[in-house]
Design a protein around this nucleic acid. Structure first.
Length: 1127
RNA sequence: GGGCGGUUAACUCAGCGGUAGAGUGCUAUCCUCACACGGUAGAAGUCACUGGUUCGAUCCCAGUACCGCCCACCA
């Protein structure tokens, strides 16, 4: 039993390996199932005869918070789960029989609490039971007074707590077990169990992404392809910091979008041979995470204060362990090529060390200070929050006009206020010095209603005579503006609120203990009754609420830690002004500058339990010692003490107590660019990857994070954290609404990858709503928008969609139909590859250079187009224009390679010479192979799968496409002549097809074509034209016959399709064409007739216009000729 | 109050001084041996409005209207 217990304890201390969990959990369950018989009752314990001495470590349990579960094992402390014991009714009654004095009772209670907690685990640790017995025995022996009903309830309370905690522990255990069971292995936790992939060379008729994704990601990761490049001789390096998501969070559309872009950038630079690092990690997200865990506790009827700080922290860590990998698993599903071996967590030992180091240094430099200031206070969480975490919303309220009688007894001043309850803390009434209405009363005193205090009437510019009555009450302790007025006039603030925003003892007795909202109602009623409420007007005002809890934020005078911002902000502004950090799009620079120019000191302390504890210690006299460790603080204290004694002052040594507060989450985030690179230790990664290349993020955290990283990184390392900041738009729903849980319009990116039924979608959207009443309407709109649920698009299609939507300076309305289109695109690429494999696998693809290869204009054309696309792609990456990247790829693959080249290649393969066929296969294969490399950064999975099959045909190959070079650009490969030739062919083909279509010729019917060519050499086009336009023959004639057949004009060629026509219809068609041409001619002529145009427009523009006119005129003539023939 | 965006085809968006483009949708037609998640052809726009600059404005400038966001905030 002991061994089992130790195993459990070891795990709870975090020393057990993840793999050991299921086994240990099984042990626990086992123990619970079978061992209820050997759980001792309290009776057994309290009156057991054992009399062994209490071990020293058991005594120290008194330092634990009441109700803390404590287990002793080998001198170490750890909380532990255990089953629920039966309530010890007999014990209570027997103890009750005793008589006990109050102080003694307290001592007993405390000890009992501890003992009861221990007893619960007694079956693991018999010796504890023994120690406990002894303690109880001793207590019983010492006491001869009885314990009253108080004791009974106290014991019951303790037991309840214990029971609650045990239930928690058990549930947690089960959850963890499930979570672990769901993870097949540590390295590939992200994908469903791999399905069988199609065998080599066999290729499915359509693209099925799931198996391919599940296969390739683990291969890449296990092969170490994501690892940071650390070659210091490599001149190129590219680093992206992952904005660390909340460790307990899940991936949302915004993440998926940004991660897609980051991954594309990293893969692109990796393929270009750069040293690359995509630094992943997660954030402990202080408030957010604490709230989640508190809610869990709440559901079980326990508060964090009940279980104590240490236990609470442990629970958060457990929650982190259990859910912390969710988001990284999801990232893997999206193909993120982060260097997972470098994954960091802001509360890691290393990063925590950096946090302490940074804090201490800033403090030493005088940039961190502690002081009593008015801060934004969340009375629900009971912590300070920073300005940025406060979100103001307009709400309907009232403006109340209150009479303040003059102390002289004659008349009164009327103040207008939106917060009457704060009047209890008024210290003055203020008017504008220029306001004639109040000139006389400045300097006199008024009587504060309900309080009876007299306060002065002061004059201050802050008061706007036009608003309200032009007379303002001044409450420095509860309003930021009033605080400043108070400082100017040396008025002592009167705080009237407790930390949970109830009226405190500084206020008249009648209001004490009232909640601020109750107090408002009571005060208004009382004022009304006394005839002091002059007027009530409806009024809209901005109510500040906490971004996390939605509680109305209260300005509160408290002791807090601050970072002095002026010098840091100036450095941050300078770095951007010098261009060391660039924003893309540029206009975000303005936002950044504006914020830094108006910045206030940053309140970094939070009265929370989850976060980096502030490295400051206090002695008994309240002196503060900021130090890296307790020992260092102790040394400072000792020295100060010695100095005092030396100076002949009296001083006593006291035990140091660490500051209870933790740091704002964003403090550690601000250090992310160098803390993740193991600063301050010099190492290759730090040398190579600071500054990083680009930060990809949304504008919403420019203030929270971007600006602070710039300031901190500059301060500590002298370098900027990143050279560019690419600010993406926000992903919104199809109606342009921000996606949020409460709106019920969230989409899980993985649902787009895997597909989801409408039922599960509704379930997901309506689960755990803050306001369950919304469930019905959310369900309704969801069913309306997704009547069929969402089909599986696959990761590549989703990524391509994100890329195509990533234009600059615009939010993204996420439109599912785009996914549809790009899923189809994947299929197109897949089938083009299938075609190439069918025609080239096992055939001569021109790998052997000694054999003759003949390349047609079509072959040269497609190669030329490929190089243009590669140019465009590189430009797109350079400018972060992923939409352009997507367009370039899409157009190349679909419009050029598939629609034209593959069709032309079919002709060449069917009719060409051996050398031509060889050239065709070579081109088919090589261009496709390059297309795959070109596309890989955006669509990693499908390109890898296809490349593995295609590359060998192009005499390439390797373990992965991601290690191949990105296609090179090269003006040499641009072939203008071939492009013109194919362009002509395309126009001829389209003209024929249009004629066919307009004449309603069945696709299966082949027709002869007569061509009257001008200068154009038509012969080379004939085979292609015949196939593409389904012609039975092409006859070149000197003059088209006078026949009743449709004619089309392309350049200097006239095409006649030999088909019987309706003369009237054909005339109508030609007339329509003629009208269009004449309109163009008209526009062109008037332009060219304008002397100003001829005189001022640049020559090439004039030339272009002249040529255009000539072309139209030629066409017009042909059309007229044809019309005459039909006459 | 200060600042930043947006307004282009039915929808979602590119273009940003010189012939209005894409995807989706729509119409017609075709299961032609890579692909019906497809082929072919087609219809569809006074580029919000008003002025200005210019030989020329969807594009530049100014203003108006509407939509959206950020910051600050008058009690």
């Amino acid at each position: 039993m002991l061994a089992r217990a130790d195993a459990l304890l070891a795990r709870h201390r975090g020393t057990g390996s993840a793999r050991a969990l299921p086994a240990a959990a099984a042990l626990l369950t086992d123990a619970i199932d079978t061992s209820s018989a050997d759980i001792p009752t309290l009776t057994d314990i309290a009156f057991a005869p054992a009399l062994q001495p209490v071990p020293a470590h058991v005594k120290s349990a008194g330092a634990q918070a009441p109700g803390e579960t404590v287990v002793v094992s080998e001198g170490r402390w750890a909380s532990s789960p255990a089953p629920e014991p039966a309530p010890p009714v007999e014990v209570i009654s027997r103890v009750q029989a005793q008589n006990l004095e109050h102080t003694v009772y307290l001592k007993l209670k405390q000890e009992l609490d501890e003992r009861i907690a221990e007893v619960v685990h007694e079956r693991f640790m018999p010796e504890i039971g023994v120690a406990l017995d002894h303690a109880l025995q001793k207590v019983t022996h010492d006491l001869n007074a009885s314990v009253g009903a108080l004791v009974r309830s106290s014991i019951e309370e303790t037991l309840q707590l214990q029971i609650g905690k045990l239930r928690l522990a058990l549930e947690d255990e089960v959850r963890r077990e499930e979570a672990v069971a769901a993870i097949p292995s540590a390295i590939i936790p992200a994908f469903p169990a791999p399905q069988a992939r199609p065998a080599e060379m066999e290729i499915a008729k359509s693209f099925e992404p799931a198996a391919i994704e599940a296969h390739w990601y683990p291969v890449w990761e296990e092969s170490g392809f994501f690892r940071a490049g650390l070659d210091e001789s490599n001149p190129g390096n590219h680093c992206i910091l992952l904005p660390p998501p909340n460790v307990t969070g899940t991936l949302h559309m915004g993440h998926a979008f940004q991660h897609t872009l980051m991954d594309a950038l990293v893969r692109y630079h990796r393929m270009r041979g750069y040293n690359t690092l995509w630094q992943p990690g997660t954030d402990h997200a202080g408030i957010a995470t604490q709230i989640v865990v508190e809610r869990q506790l709440e559901a079980l009827g326990v508060s964090r204060r009940d279980i104590g700080r240490a236990e609470f922290e442990k629970r958060v860590w457990q929650w982190k362990e259990a859910s912390g990998s969710t988001i990284t698993r999801q990232m893997r599903r999206l193909g993120a090529s982060c260097d997972w071996s470098r994954e960091r967590f802001t509360m890691d030992e290393g990063l925590s060390g950096v946090v302490t180091e940074a804090f201490v240094r800033l403090h030493e430099e005088g940039l961190i200070y502690r002081g009593k200031r008015l801060v934004n206070w969340d009375p629900v969480l009971q912590t300070a929050v920073s300005d940025l975490e406060v979100e103001s919303r307009e709400e309907n309220s009232h403006l109340w006009y209150i009479r303040y009688p003059l102390a002289s007894g004659e008349g009164h001043a009327i103040v207008a206020t939106t917060r009457p309850e704060t009047m209890l803390g008024d210290v003055a009434v203020a008017v504008n010095p220029e306001d004639p209405a109040y000139k006389d009363i400045v300097g006199s005193r008024v009587v504060l209603p309900l309080c009876g205090r007299q306060v002065p009437v002061i004059a201050d510019d802050y008061v706007d005579p036009e608003f309200g009555t032009g007379c303002v009450k001044i409450t420095p302790a509860h309003d930021f503006n009033d605080y400043q007025v108070g400082e100017r006039h040396k008025l002592e603030p009167i705080n009237i609120f407790t930390l949970d925003a109830r009226i405190n003892d500084n206020a008249p007795a009648a209001y004490r203990g009232l909640d601020r909202f109750e107090a408002r109602a009571r005060i208004l009623a009382d004022l009304e009754e006394q005839g002091l409420l002059a007027e009530t007007k409806p009024h809209k005002l901005m109510v500040p609420r906490c971004g996390r809890t939605d509680a109305v934020v209260e300005p509160m005078l408290t002791d807090q830690w601050f970072v002095r911002m002026d010098s840091l902000a100036r450095a941050g502004l300078d770095a951007v002004a010098r261009g060391e950090v660039k924003f893309v799009p540029e206009n975000w620079t303005t936002t950044y500058n504006q914020w830094l120019n108006n910045i206030q000191d940053w309140c970094i302390s939070r009265q929370l339990w989850w976060g980096h504890r502030i490295p400051a210690w206090y002695d008994g006299e309240g002196n503060v010692y900021v130090a890296r460790t307790r020992a260092e603080a102790q040394a400072q204290h000792d020295q100060a003490l010695a100095e005092c004694i030396q100076a002949g002052e009296s001083a006593t040594a006291t035990e140091l107590r660490q500051d209870d507060d933790v740091l704002d989450t964003w403090f550690s985030s601000a250090l992310w660019p160098f803390s993740t690179l193991d600063w301050p230790r010099d190492n290759p990664a730090l040398r190579l990857y600071l500054p990083s290349s680009v930060l990809v993020t949304g504008f919403d955290i420019i203030f929270f994070w971007v600006a602070r990283m710039v300031m901190m990184t500059l301060h500590f390392t002298g370098k900027v954290p990143f050279r560019e900041v690419y600010v993406t738009g926000l992903v919104r729903d199809a109606e342009g609404q921000k996606m949020s849980k409460s709106k019920g319009n969230i989409l899980d990116p993985l649902d787009l990858v895997d597909g989801v039924s409408v039922e599960s979608l509704v379930e997901k959207r309506t689960a755990n709503l803050m306001d369950p009443r919304q469930a019905e309407s959310i369900a309704r709109t969801t069913r309306k928008h997704f009547p069929e649920g969402i089909p599986a698009f696959g990761t590549d299609a989703l990524r391509f969609t994100f890329a195509s939507l990533a234009s600059h300076g615009r939010d993204i309305k996420f439109d599912l139909s785009r996914c549809d289109g790009y899923r189809n695109f994947c299929n197109k690429l897949w089938n083009a590859s299938r075609f190439v494999l069918m025609n080239c696998a096992g055939r001569d693809t021109g790998v052997d250079d000694s054999l003759a290869v003949e390349l047609s204009a079509a072959d040269r054309w497609v190669a030329s187009r490929l190089h243009r696309a590669a140019d465009d792609a590189r430009a797109a990456f350079r400018e972060y224009r992923f939409d352009n990247l997507a367009r370039a790829i899409y157009g190349l693959v679909w419009d050029e390679y598939c629609d034209w080249y593959v069709e032309l290649a079919k002709v060449q393969l069917a009719t060409g010479s051996e050398a031509q066929q060889r050239g065709t296969r070579r081109t088919l294969v090589r261009v496709l192979e390059a297309i795959l490399r070109l596309t890989h950064p955006v669509m990693p999975f499908i390109t890898e799968e296809l490349w593995q099959k295609i590359a060998p045909l192009a005499a390439r190959g390797g373990p992965s496409i991601m290690l191949q070079r990105y296609p090179e650009t090269g003006a040499a490969k641009i072939d203008e002549a071939a492009e013109q030739e194919v362009d002509m062919l395309k126009r001829l083909t389209t003209a024929c097809r249009t004629l066919r279509s307009e004449m309603n010729v069945a696709p299966s019917q082949k027709l002869p074509l007569l061509v009257q060519a001008g200068q154009t050499q038509i012969t080379p086009y004939v085979p292609y034209l015949s196939a593409l336009a389904r012609l039975s023959e092409v006859v070149v004639v000197a003059e088209l016959p006078v026949a009743e057949a449709p004619v089309s004009i392309v350049g200097d060629c006239r095409l006649m399709l030999k088909v019987e026509i309706d003369v009237a219809a054909e005339r109508a068609r030609l007339n329509k064409e003629k009208a269009r041409t004449e309109a163009e001619i008209g526009k062109s002529e008037s332009r060219l007739a304008n002397p100003n145009f001829l005189g001022k427009a640049p020559a090439p523009v004039v030339l272009q216009e002249t040529e255009r006119l000539a072309r139209f005129r030629a066409t017009l003539e042909q059309l007229e000729q044809q019309l005459r023939k039909l006459a």
